[in-house]
């Protein structure tokens, strides 16, 4: 009978389907398979897939590696806080530190070149949100995430922190230049 009463038929499993239901189930199933194929297929043919290369790390270890790159490739300093601007050669490893409450250092990349961006947090979870491209990646402390990144447009890009990380969260900003 109705949905709040037990089924009227003893063997309700055998009740034949209406054609509306049958047709819709087939259509919905096909659509679900298309979506699944898109997600898998993009890994093969697409150019935007998040790398899963990850290492367990510590703030000391990561901080040292980041400092080495900064020492080697700093081209100038910006803002009154003297934040180094790092211009590493194409194809090389770039380190970006997320910490309370900044992204360090500033990075300068070249258009259409590929870099290996290493990301970690020194303290809490942070959110790497590249604007205005709107690419968003979680940054988890203790884990070094290595992402191959190929900027396809020149300009000045900002990194907004979009994972809550305490009282200074809203002011946590970083920058990437692409030439």
């Amino acid at each position: 009978m109705s949905a709040i009463l037990p089924p009227a038929e003893r063997l309700w499993w055998k009740h034949p389907l209406d054609r509306v239901e049958g047709t819709w189930i087939v259509i919905a199933f096909v659509w679900c398979m298309i979506m699944f194929a898109m997600m898998v297929g993009w890994h093969i043919y697409g150019k935007q897939n998040l790398s899963t290369e990850t290492y367990k790390t510590t703030p000391e270890l990561f901080g040292k590696k980041a400092q080495d790159v900064v020492d080697k490739y700093t081209v100038r300093k910006e803002t009154d806080r003297e934040i180094p601007v790092v211009h590493p050669p194409p194809g090389s490893d770039v380190y970006l530190v997320a910490r309370l409450w900044d992204w360090w250092p500033i990075i300068e990349l070249e258009k259409d070149q590929t870099y290996k961006l290493h990301l970690t947090s020194m303290d809490y979870n942070h959110g790497f949100s590249l604007q205005p491209v709107n690419i968003n990646i979680q940054v988890v402390p203790g884990y070094e995430h290595v992402i191959k990144m190929t900027p396809n447009q020149a300009g000045t890009f900002s990194i907004v922190c979009n994972e809550f990380c305490g009282i200074g969260h809203a002011n946590m900003a970083g920058r990437i230049y692409v030439k």
């Binding site: 003893r10 063997l11 499993w13 055998k14």
Partner: peptide, 14 residues
């Protein structure tokens, strides 16, 4: 396939 057959066994899925 009568859903009200009193003697038929209950289908596995049910």
């Amino acid at each position: 396939n009568d859903p009200n057959d009193l003697n038929a066994p209950v289908p596995f899925m049910q």
